[in-house]
Design a protein around this nucleic acid. Structure first.
Lengths: 249, 249
DNA sequence: ACTAATCGTGCATGAACAGGCATTAAAACT
DNA sequence: AGTTTTAATGCCTGTTCATGCACGATTAGT
């Protein structure tokens, strides 16, 4: 295993768990604690993490109570969500995957919209429970800690019985050739189930996710009917998707 | 657990409750009070909190910062939860109903407890997703707006397959003769299912709920093994329950 | 003023650390 | 190809850090 690989792994761990322990890393990566210490020191000197006795932590601690309030690239996501809302009609059955864009969608739903929303995301369910007319159904299952979404067999079984009008699928990466991809295997399988339970699948990526790829495939691009970004629909970046027959907004 | 983690936790706790008690922190974080004292001293020296006898406070009172975290009769519920925690052992399968007392229980779970928790409450699931070692499984279903819990057939079917070690049932009213009762029909049916999936049922009412009654019956008192209130276990109010063979804490 | 809780200090112990040294492997240079 | 350089890693040693415990001093509540 290369040093760079370890560094990437460590950074990923820190991002998702807020901390790492030297002893744990040493065990997982099969190197001595000395090496880990050197890794941590280097990353710390670069300002990428904060070294502490026994391991390292993320620089800025983002407490639980604030974490879900702040949305990365919020402006862009508001633009996207505005374009997405007209897709939802009264009495629709909607499936909403996790992700901050979908959370923003949940927040911006018109208060007079009457619909049933199935979701596997805890923050989205909480948000929707405050909506006066939307009936919220949580798709239960094992909760993935970082993402605060339910995943796994329970989810997959649950949605097998649903035929939704529209599905908003969380999109970590989308590529005109490789489709929607993600990096967590279990999450990917769950997303596959969500995608296949709706006739109309919508992806809402911010433009920086366009034409990036992650290890695991959620779905091919042909299963996605609509793509909405914060860009103008004629933007060059989206040409490939228009050509493949997607509705681009 | 890293020192820095404790510090973050303490700061967050101070911000949300305006104060912390050394004894409480010591329990929750599973370290000696000496260590907590040292933590508080350090944070205090950095000017991040104000140390006082018995714990610490935040420097300036910020009235509405964490309004959503406030729990009615919080003090009493902390007392209850303290007594409840020893009931949960490592590798237990726990079922947690909704309610603010159970939410407090989720918050106070020792960070080194390893367990699987099934819950139908969104806030509790969110809280538990922050816990490092607890595996959280959400029991999906229709979300009841006010209570933010899942109810209905989906929930009932889900728990039919579970055999839990212990179930903490949310208790709106408990009576030595009429048992646990509630006022929402659908929620009541759901609670019945939760109760019947565990060998050990625990009710955590604050004393003002003792011997009150609601329209619908969740379960008779004979199905409840343990009753925990903020009162001393010998309190007269609890005599009737002791006589009926409940463990009263 | 009395009593129990809380505090501060010092000490002991084990974990984590820094820095030097040896080994290996890859890279760069004759 | 053969040699030198450099980087990466593991191991060793003395040092620092974190923590729990003991014990006397201090404080708060009655």
């Amino acid at each position: 295993m290369l040093k760079q690989e370890r560094h990437n792994y460590i950074l990923e761990e820190v991002r998702s768990h807020n901390k790492v322990l030297s002893s744990e890393l040493s065990h997982k990566l099969n190197v001595s604690e000395d090496t880990i210490r050197r890794d941590l020191k280097e990353l710390s000197d670069n300002g990428q993490i904060k070294k502490v006795h026994g391991g390292a932590m993320q620089h800025a601690y983002i407490p639980f109570s604030h974490k879900d309030r702040e949305i990365y690239a919020h402006e862009e996501k508001v633009v996207i969500v505005r374009k997405a809302i007209p897709l939802i009609q009264d009495d629709f059955v909607v499936v909403m995957d996790g992700g901050t864009t979908n959370l923003e969608l949940a927040r911006q739903l018109p208060l007079d919209l009457k619909a049933t929303v199935f979701t596997n995301s805890l923050p989205i369910a909480l948000q929707l429970s405050e909506h006066p007319k939307v009936e919220t159904v949580f798709i239960g299952g094992k909760i993935l800690k970082n993402a605060q979404v339910a995943v796994g067999l329970d989810v997959i079984n649950f949605v097998a019985d649903i035929h939704a009008d529209i599905c908003f699928i969380g999109t970590r990466s989308i590529h005109h050739q490789f489709g929607i991809t993600d990096f967590d295997r279990e999450e990917t399988l769950t997303k596959q189930a969500l995608v296949s339970c709706a006739k109309h699948v919508v992806s809402l990526p911010i433009s920086e996710k366009i034409n990036t790829v992650q290890p695991y495939k959620v779905t091919g691009i042909e299963k996605v009917q609509t793509l909405i970004t914060e860009l103008a629909s004629e933007d060059d970046l989206l040409t490939a998707y228009r050509k493949r027959g997607l509705q681009v907004l």
